[in-house]
Design a protein around this nucleic acid. Structure first.
Length: 893
RNA sequence: GGGCGUUUAGUUCAGUUGGUUAGAACGCUAUCUUCACACGGUAGAGGUCACUGGUUCGAGUCCAGUAACGCCCACCA
C-alpha cells in the first residue's frame, strides 16, 4: 500500500461509515442459537422509544460494546439484544402536548382508539432516532433482534405474567392511598415520586371547640386539605389536651362537626401537639382514619382542582389557589394564629414535574414480598454480583422493606389490563381472551378494565420476553440467562431488582450474573446534565467533530471507578489525539514496506536476532496483554483505558518506535526484517487489545496494514494471549534484562537533559560518553548501540568502562552508569554544581530514610527478612550512585 | 432521622492485600517544524496525600473521631 493511502491525520467519518455497514451486512453482530460456542448475552437497557441519544447512553452502550467485542474475540457466541421501551407516561405526555400545540386537541377529544393511533404514528416517525444514533456509536447489537415493549411477543409475555400472578394471588385490586400525578392524571408507584426540599409555610389555624368559646390550634403545611378534615387528633398521653377527648370541633368554612380522637401517631412535641386529620388526602391521616373509622372525604378532582366536596366557595379552584383562599378566609375570621417559614420534603411526579397528591383510589397491586425473598438471596449469596459491590446495601434495604407495587395507570399508552368486570354482578375475570359470559352470574356483559400497566411491568420481563417467552424456543434456551447487565444505579429499584424477581419467578433462573453500575455524567463544573441548563452535549455533534472512537475512548478514560464523571466536549481531544497517535504509528509502519511472511509468529531464527529493545517491547506487550485481560474481566474499564494509553504512547511510540528507526534506517536487511516482524507482532496485538473500545480506527489500520485480508475483520481475530512462555524458555526475557532496558532509557533521558541544561539544540549532533558501572549494562548498550545513538541524536556514543574525562565535563549519574556530554568549551561549573547538587540532595534524603530504618532494631527484628534485605540492597545502590555524584562534584573546579 | 460516597499537583483523577524517591492526563514553562504524528517531540516546574488521634518496625493505604461537599432512603402534620 502506498503512503498516500494514509493521510497525515486520521479521518474518522469515512472509516466509521464503511466499517459499520460491513460489520452489519456480514452478520458479525448476529447471534445464532445453533452455534457451538458458549453464549455471551447482554440485553440493552431499553431507552425510551421517543428518546434521543445522550451522553449517559454513550457511556452505557460503550461499556456494553466493549464487553461484547471482547467476548466475541474470546470466541463467545455474542448476543446483544437492542430495543426500546414504550415509556407510558413520558410518551403519552409528549404526544398529548404535541396535539395540544398543533391541533388544540386533548386525548379525550380523539377518544382512546384514535389517540393510540396518533401515538403509534408518532412512534413510527420519531421512534427510530435513538436506534440510528446507536449505530453511529458503533454498537455491535444484533439488530435483527430489535424489540419494542409493545410488540406482540412482549405484550403476550406481559399478559401472561399478569394472569399467572393473579392466579397465584400475587396481584390484587384494592382501594389504597396512592401517589397521584394531577398533571398526567394517573396513579404512580412509590418509585416514581421524587422528594425535593421546599421552603413552604406552617400555618397555625384555630378550630373552635363545640360548646364554648375555646379553640384548638392545629399546624399544617396544606391548609386547603382542611376542607376534607374529618377529625382532630391528639396523643393519648398528652396531658395538656385530655379535656378535649369526647368533645367535637366545628370545622370552620365547611361547618362540619368533627370528633377529637386520640392516636399514638401524634407527636406531642411537633407544632401544637394537635393534628388535623384528612383521611382522604394524607397517607398517615388515612391510616388514622381506618383505625378510628372516620369518614374519608375527597375534596379534589383528578387534575388537582377542588371538587364539590370542597364547598361552593372553593369548587373549581386549583389546589394552590385554594390554599391561598383558605388562608385568607382564616385570616379574615381571625382564626389564623400564626405563620412560620417551614422547610420540608415535597413529593414530585417524576414525569409530570408537579407535586403529587396522595389520593384514595382503586388500583391494581403486586404483592412483592414473596417475590423479593429469593431475589435477596440471589444477590447475597453471590450468584449475582454487583460492581461496585456497595450497591448491594441499597438493594437490600429496599428489598427488605419492599411495598406492594401499584401497577395500574390511568393512561391509554401501554398494555391494557386483561381484567374484565361483569356489568351485572361486578365479578372480576382475568384472562387472555375476553370472557363471553360471567363465570359467576352467567351474565353476558363484561367490560375490560380501562387502565394500562406501569411501563416497568413490561421492562421487568425484558431479559426473557425479548426471546419470545413464554413460547419455548431455541433462542430462549440458548441465550437466557444473560451474563452481564450494564445500567445506572438510579434504576436499581425500578428495574434491576424487579428483573431479578421476575427472572427467578418465571424462568426459575436469575436473569444475569453480573451487574455493572455506570457512573453519572456531569458537566465539568459537576452539575447534572440537563436541558434547562443547556449543558447537555449532543453526542452526534461530538462524533462528527472528534469521531466515534474518540468519544468512546474519552468517556471510558475519564470515568473514575464508581464515581461521577466530569465531562466536557473538549476532553474528547484525549480520544481524538490518541486515535491519531495510533494512526500515525500505523502510517510509520506502512512506510517501512509490506508486512513480512508469518508476521504473526516468532520463530527460533527471529529469536536469535532479537536485540534488547525487541525483547523489552515483547515482554512489556506480554505484560499488557495479561493486565488488560484482567482489567476487562474485572470490569475495570478505567484501568483498561489507562493501560492502553500508557502502553501505546509511552512505551511503544516513545521508545520502541524510535528505537526501531535505527534498524529501519540502517543497512542490515536481516535485522530490519526481524524488527519489522517484532513491530507487526506487537502492533497487531495492540490493535486487538484496543479494538473493544476503539473499533473503527483499529479495523481501519488492521486493513491498511494488511493484518487481515480485505474480506476479513479484526472483529474475527482472536483476543491476544500471553505468548512469552510459548516462544522462549531460555531466559531471553528475564526480568533483570527487561528492567535494565528501562534503566538504559533513563540514562538516555539524563543525556537529553544535559543537552537541555546547556541549551544545545535538539537537532545538533553531539558526542556522548557513557561509563557503565557493570558489565551487563555495558553489553546491553553495545547490543543496541545504533538506537542509543539515534535516541540521543548523538554524533557518536562511546561506551568505555574506564572513561576519564580530561577536566570537567557535564555529566549525569544513573543506576548503571554515568553519561557525559564532553563538548568543547561547554561547561558551566555553576550549572553543574546546581544540577548535581540537586541530585545529591535527593539521594541524601532517600539514604537518610533508609538508614533510619536499617538502624532501627525493631525494624530489623520485626519486618519480614525480604523487606529488610531489599532495603539493604537499595541502600547499597543509592550509596554507589551517591559516590559517583560526589566524585563528579569533587572534580568540578 | 438513617445509610452511602468523596476529600492526593492549578484542574480531573490513578494509587490493588500497609513496604522502592506518591503517578498520569490536561494545563503551565523552555525548546524544536529532524523525513509517523504540532491532534506532535524533548526537557522541566508543580503535592506537609482534608483534619485529629490510634494500631504498627513502617500509614496516602488499616481503625476511631472531626469537618466540608455530594448522593440515596424515610409517613411527623
Amino acid at each position: 500500500m502506498s503512503d498516500d493511502a494514509m493521510p497525515k491525520a486520521y479521518e474518522p467519518a469515512k472509516a466509521e461509515e464503511k466499517w459499520y455497514s460491513q460489520w452489519e451486512s456480514r452478520g458479525y453482530f448476529e447471534a445464532h442459537a445453533d452455534s457451538q460456542a458458549d453464549a455471551y448475552t447482554i440485553v440493552i437497557p431499553p431507552p425510551n422509544v421517543t428518546g434521543v441519544l445522550t451522553l449517559g447512553h454513550v457511556l452505557n452502550n460503550t461499556l456494553q460494546d466493549i464487553l461484547i467485542r471482547f467476548e466475541k474475540m474470546r470466541g463467545k457466541e455474542i448476543c446483544w439484544v437492542p430495543g426500546t421501551d414504550h415509556a407510558g407516561i413520558a410518551t403519552q405526555a409528549k404526544v398529548e402536548a404535541h396535539l395540544r400545540e398543533t391541533e388544540n386537541l386533548s386525548r379525550t377529544d380523539l377518544g382512546r382508539e384514535e389517540f393510540l393511533e396518533r401515538v403509534w404514528q408518532w412512534k413510527r416517525e420519531y421512534g427510530g432516532t435513538i436506534i440510528r444514533q446507536l449505530r453511529r456509536l458503533g454498537t455491535a447489537c444484533d439488530w435483527r433482534r430489535e424489540r419494542f415493549t409493545l410488540d406482540e411477543g412482549l405484550s403476550n409475555a406481559v399478559q401472561d405474567v399478569f394472569i399467572r400472578l393473579y392466579e397465584r394471588g400475587l396481584i390484587y385490586k384494592g382501594t389504597r392511598m396512592i401517589n397521584w400525578c394531577p398533571m398526567s392524571r394517573t396513579a404512580l408507584s412509590d418509585e416514581e415520586v421524587i422528594y425535593q426540599t421546599e421552603r413552604g409555610f406552617l400555618w397555625y389555624m384555630k378550630y373552635p371547640v363545640v360548646g364554648g368559646s375555646d379553640t384548638v390550634s392545629v399546624a399544617t403545611t396544606r391548609p386547603e386539605t382542611m376542607l376534607g378534615d374529618t377529625a382532630v387528633a391528639i396523643n393519648p398521653d398528652d396531658e395538656r389536651y385530655q379535656h378535649l377527648l369526647g368533645k367535637t370541633i366545628m370545622l370552620p368554612l365547611v361547618k362540619r362537626e368533627i370528633p377529637v380522637i386520640a392516636d399514638q401517631f401524634v407527636d406531642k412535641a411537633f407544632g401544637t401537639g394537635i393534628v388535623k386529620v384528612t383521611p382522604g388526602h394524607d397517607p398517615n391521616d388515612y391510616e388514622m382514619g381506618v383505625r378510628h373509622d372516620l369518614e374519608m372525604i375527597n375534596v379534589m378532582n383528578d387534575d388537582g382542582t377542588m371538587n364539590e366536596n370542597a364547598g361552593a366557595d372553593f369548587q373549581g379552584m386549583d389546589r394552590y389557589e385554594c390554599r391561598a383562599a383558605v388562608v385568607e378566609c382564616f385570616t379574615e375570621l381571625g382564626l389564623l394564629e400564626k405563620t412560620e417559614v417551614y422547610e420540608h420534603q415535597v413529593g414530585f411526579s417524576e414525569r409530570g414535574h408537579v407535586a403529587v397528591e396522595p389520593r384514595l383510589s382503586e388500583q391494581w397491586f403486586v404483592r412483592m414480598q414473596p417475590l423479593a425473598e429469593p431475589a435477596i438471596k440471589a444477590v447475597n449469596d453471590g450468584r449475582i454480583k454487583f460492581y461496585p459491590e456497595r450497591w448491594i446495601k441499597t438493594y437490600n434495604h429496599w428489598m427488605e422493606n419492599i411495598k406492594d407495587w401499584c401497577i395500574s395507570r390511568q393512561l391509554w399508552w401501554g398494555h391494557r389490563i386483561p381484567a374484565y368486570t361483569c356489568d351485572g354482578c361486578g365479578e372480576i375475570a382475568v384472562s387472555r381472551e375476553p370472557p363471553t359470559v360471567c363465570a359467576k352470574c352467567g351474565g353476558a356483559g363484561l367490560t375490560q378494565d380501562e387502565d394500562v400497566l406501569d411501563t416497568w411491568f413490561s421492562s421487568w420481563l425484558w431479559p426473557f420476553s425479548v426471546f419470545d417467552w413464554p413460547r419455548e424456543n431455541a433462542d430462549l434456551a440458548r441465550f437466557y440467562p444473560t451474563q452481564t447487565l450494564v445500567t445506572g444505579p438510579d434504576i436499581i429499584f425500578f428495574w434491576v431488582a424487579r428483573m431479578i424477581m421476575s427472572g427467578i419467578e418465571f424462568m426459575g433462573a436469575i436473569p444475569f450474573s453480573k451487574v455493572y453500575y455506570t457512573s453519572i455524567i456531569r458537566d465539568d463544573q459537576g452539575r447534572k446534565l440537563s436541558k434547562s441548563l443547556n449543558n447537555s452535549p449532543d453526542p452526534l455533534n461530538v462524533i462528527d467533530t472528534y469521531g466515534a472512537d474518540a468519544l468512546r475512548f474519552t468517556v471510558i478514560y475519564i470515568s473514575p471507578l464508581g464515581q461521577d464523571i466530569r465531562y466536557s466536549d473538549k476532553k474528547c481531544e484525549i480520544g481524538r489525539n490518541f486515535a491519531n497517535k495510533l494512526w500515525n504509528a500505523a502510517r510509520f509502519r506502512a512506510m517501512q514496506g509490506p508486512i513480512t511472511q508469518e508476521w504473526n509468529s516468532l520463530s527460533g531464527a527471529d529469536l536469535g536476532r532479537l536485540r534488547p529493545d525487541d525483547r523489552w517491547i515483547l515482554a512489556r506487550t506480554d505484560e499488557a496483554v495479561r493486565s488488560i485481560t484482567t482489567d476487562l474481566d474485572a470490569f475495570d474499564f478505567h484501568s483498561y483505558s489507562i493501560s492502553l494509553y500508557q502502553f501505546i504512547w509511552n512505551r511503544f511510540c516513545d521508545w520502541y518506535v524510535e528505537s526501531a528507526k535505527a534498524s529501519f534506517y540502517g543497512d542490515d536487511a536481516a535485522r530490519k526484517q526481524t524488527t519489522l516482524k517484532v513491530f507487526d507482532f506487537v502492533f497487531s496485538r495492540i490493535l486487538r487489545l484496543m479494538h473493544p473500545v476503539m473499533p473503527f480506527v483499529t479495523e481501519e489500520i488492521y486493513h491498511q496494514l494488511d493484518y487481515v485480508t480485505t474480506d476479513d475483520s479484526i472483529m474475527l481475530t482472536a483476543w491476544p494471549e500471553s505468548f512469552l512462555e510459548t516462544i522462549s524458555t531460555d531466559g531471553l526475557f528475564d526480568r533483570a534484562v527487561i528492567d535494565m532496558v528501562d534503566e538504559k532509557f533513563g540514562l538516555i533521558s539524563a543525556g537529553r537533559n544535559l543537552r537541555g541544561s546547556y541549551n544545545i539544540p535538539g537537532g545538533r549532533k553531539i558526542p556522548y560518553y557513557i561509563r557503565p558501572t557493570d558489565a551487563g549494562f555495558s553489553e546491553l548498550l553495545r547490543a543496541d548501540m545504533d538506537s542509543v545513538k539515534l535516541l540521543l541524536n548523538a554524533e557518536a556514543v562511546t561506551v568505555d568502562t574506564d572513561y576519564d574525562p580530561q577536566g570537567t565535563v557535564p555529566s549525569a549519574v544513573e543506576k548503571h552508569g554515568v553519561i557525559y556530554m564532553p563538548l568543547e568549551g561547554v561547561i558551566n561549573i555553576g550549572e553543574e554544581v546546581k544540577r548535581l547538587g540537586k541530585q545529591r540532595d535527593e539521594l541524601c534524603g532517600v539514604i537518610r530514610g533508609i538508614a533510619a530504618k536499617l538502624s532501627n532494631k525493631k525494624f530489623l527484628t520485626r519486618a519480614p527478612p525480604d523487606v529488610v534485605e531489599n532495603e539493604r540492597t537499595r541502600c547499597r545502590e543509592f550509596e554507589e550512585k551517591m559516590q559517583e555524584v560526589d566524585a563528579l562534584l569533587a572534580g568540578l573546579q
